[in-house]
């Protein structure tokens, strides 16, 4: 018998609501809004309330996929990143820096979002930066 509550932050948008994920014998089974969270104060939206449901979904991507001969094929992170870097460089050289855009995410940390915009501006040379949390 192992029941744990794990304090974490909602991944659905940029608000940063806090909740406990309920873990019963190694499976995430529920969400409880955290009353002491200064942002959400024990309240959640319908997405936050159901955030535990995707965790064990068989439809989740668990590794990088690369389309080879028209079919998505599992590949290593190294292969996926090498391929992405190579194509991005080719596109940039052929069409200019502004032919590339970066879409950041509410599901990552501030620091990771800082890194992606820094990479976009400093490494690739574009201000085409947007994010998924246009609420």
């Amino acid at each position: 018998m192992e029941y744990r509550t794990v304090l974490t932050t909602c991944t659905y948008c940029g608000c940063g609501c806090g909740f406990y994920l309920e873990v019963l014998d190694g499976r995430v089974v529920g969400t409880i809004p955290c009353k002491t969270n200064p942002v959400s104060e024990g309240k959640l939206c319908v997405k936050g309330w159901n955030v535990h449901e995707f965790i064990h979904s068989p439809k989740r991507l668990t590794q990088p996929l690369l389309r080879k001969d028209g079919a998505l094929t599992p590949v290593s992170w190294d292969e996926a990143l090498d391929f992405t870097a190579k194509r991005m460089r080719e596109i940039k050289e052929a069409n200019g820096s502004d032919s590339v855009a970066f879409l950041a995410s509410a599901k990552v940390t501030n620091e990771e979002n800082y890194l992606i915009q820094k990479f976009a501006r400093a490494a690739v040379g574009t201000n085409n930066v947007d994010h998924c949390a246009r609420l």
């Binding site: 192992e2 029941y3 509550t5 304090l7 406990y20 409880i32 002491t36 969270n37």
Partner: peptide
């Protein structure tokens, strides 16, 4: 009892917890 369902304070936050 095999376990006790109560509240625990950890890192400044309070939530449900199963004490065993």
């Amino acid at each position: 009892v095999k376990g006790f369902i109560g509240l625990r304070e950890l890192h400044g936050h309070i939530g449900p917890y199963l004490f065993t």
